[in-house]
Design a protein around this nucleic acid. Structure first.
Lengths: 357, 357
DNA sequence: CTGTTAGCGCTTTCAC
DNA sequence: GTGAAAGCGCTAACAG
């Protein structure tokens, strides 16, 4: 019961206990610097008086460490929190942070409702709170990264940044592998359903004139290259394989595009869909079922990501499993300095489900 | 190009520009306190010299505000990030925080792998960073809440806390309503599949002897009460309706329990399953399909939550839609002081899908 | 409109 | 093992 409702400080506590502030501080931070008995006495009194321990704000100013790591997401937080892949990444990050006494701050390069390109942090202020940064899926060359304190560790995930360590999978190779598998049984008409491939936002069929993002920096372009390499190898000219683009990896955006594809006249409708995400493939699967199109007999489907939802339903998705949890773990360990900060490429596995046996 | 790689400070900047620190500070924080020209000059020079703006740690110590709001989750972060309902809540929270220049810090009352009850914050240290707290789904009477700075705003979601505002839905009423709907077509054998209902962790069929959590504090118990009220009203003795309990709302935990139920001899197998979550109901739906049990002809199913995944597949889930995004918004607005901090009860909607028409 | 100054609460040398 | 004192970088009075 303090007479004022001002929060109790370490100094207050020291005065009441007739010890110096250094001793109280040591009681909390450096047990070896004082007698066991005194330490326990101080901790007990602190609890009794309702002192919650050293204030994180003051401590972080003094020590220069906040024990906070920020994950900067290219997408809106709303999207990222509801997307299985981003969620897995965050799970991996938090697992490592938790284990090392750090906590997670979520930042977004993109406000809900603002244009697609993320070119500035929404709230640069609180960013300087963090001890380090994990940047997930940004467009290259963004100002965003420059707004972050340059001295602190930063790890990129799923995109390329110069002069900073990144964590990747080999998207080109993985897509080559799954397309190669799919093409062992030659399709009548293949099609590609891509994720955010064009420079200008665009959802629907892509024409030859549209500019694609460059393969060096974006995973979707690398995936397309993998698909097309496999197609060429099987003697199918990539230009003969139509590409549809989907700008946001959510059911509501996927469904109309998929519907457009499935509702093509029978002689134009693809019998193989190479999809750049499981979300897209699952949407295709659901819509195909609703139309009585049999999978895989009438339509074969491949996904990408290996999310749970695609594996515990029937038919199971044929897809590429990328371990996003592990990506998060690796990125977090690099940021915390627990492993050398260098480019890392994680492996993927081909998952042979029922949608493209 | 500073000669040292020590981060540049506001004071450094002021010295180089031959103005006082106050002026630089004002340039960033109080545009009206200096001439437009001077302000722009300062900002331009700051950018040129690589000064990223006032340090958040120092600023937060000085002002007492970090512009960070913490969400404290009862479950592990891994679970919460992958669960549709928690994700929606977080979406609602971030939407409001973003719009008001705040950021989100994620805390968990529970470490991965530690026992079920959350009784202490995993990292109390960084908690005191936050300006306010949203606590989601904790067990009552927990020490956890007492470890948070008492002076700062705190809002509870989906559970009851004394002397603090909370955001709720009326679980009892909602479950009464959906069960009542389900029972208009009298079942041969109803069963309830519950979520974390027992005091002791337990997954599987619940016997009469096991202790349930109290209805005052936990939503699962309130949901059970709602189901049972409807059953009684239809002349079915609640004790005749078996209850299975599931301790974690994920497919891997649900599946074996559901399999056990569906694999009962035909004359014992329920033809109505009242499930406490959509995750449970969706698992039941998938497993039923795999066994050739027709839904709703052979088995009717109801869920709870109204997650997307249950609505864009066929058959669509019959469920109760609770707007978790809105819960998050309301909680965030209360924490920020944008609306009066008081108990709020949000409405739910009965969603009549195909699994229990 | 601009500059001076006193801390915010804490950690950490450094003497004792 | 313990205490006195110097700031960490910034903001908000206040005086000019």
């Amino acid at each position: 019961m303090s007479t004022s409702d001002r929060p109790i400080t370490l100094k207050d506590l020291a005065q009441r206990l007739k010890v110096s502030t250094a001793t109280v501080s040591n009681a909390f931070n450096r047990p070896d610097q004082l007698s066991r008995a005194l330490r326990e006495h101080i901790l007990a009194e602190a609890r009794r008086l309702g002192y919650p321990g050293p204030d994180a704000r003051a401590r972080s100013l003094r020590t220069g460490q906040s024990r906070i790591v920020a994950v900067v997401l290219a997408e809106t937080l709303t999207y990222s929190l509801n997307d299985a892949v981003s969620s897995e990444l965050l799970s991996g990050v938090t697992e490592v942070l938790d284990a090392h006494g750090h906590t997670l701050l979520l930042l977004s390069g993109r406000q809900a409702g603002s244009p697609r390109q993320a070119d500035a942090l929404c709230h640069p202020g609180s960013a300087s709170m963090a001890d380090g940064f994990i940047v997930y899926g940004l467009m290259p060359g963004d100002r965003l990264i420059n707004e972050l304190p340059a001295q602190r560790p930063l790890v990129g995930v799923d995109f390329h940044i110069d002069a900073r360590p990144t964590v990747h999978v080999d998207n080109e190779q993985a897509c080559y592998a799954i397309a190669r598998h799919a093409l062992t049984h030659a399709p009548q008409r293949a099609a590609i359903v891509s994720l955010r491939l064009t420079v200008e936002p665009h959802t629907g069929r892509v024409s030859q004139e549209q500019d694609y993002l460059s393969a060096d920096h974006t995973i979707t372009r690398a995936r397309l290259d993998g698909f097309q390499r496999a197609l060429s190898e099987q003697g199918i000219a990539p230009d003969d394989v139509p590409v549809w683009n989907i700008d946001e990896n959510v059911h509501a955006v996927c469904a109309p595009v998929i519907a457009e594809i499935l509702d093509l006249p029978a002689e134009q409708r693809p019998d193989l869909l190479l999809c750049m995400s499981d979300r897209i493939a699952l949407t295709a699967l659901t819509l195909a079922e609703q139309r009585g199109i049999r999978v895989p007999q009438d339509l074969r489907l491949t996904g990408f990501d290996g999310i749970e939802e695609g594996q515990y339903r029937a038919p199971r998705l044929t897809t590429v499993r990328q371990n996003s949890i592990e990506k998060g773990r690796v990125a977090a360990r690099m940021v915390l300095g627990l492993e050398p900060a260098q480019h890392q490429r994680l492996s993927t596995q081909l998952v042979l489900g029922d949608t493209c046996p």
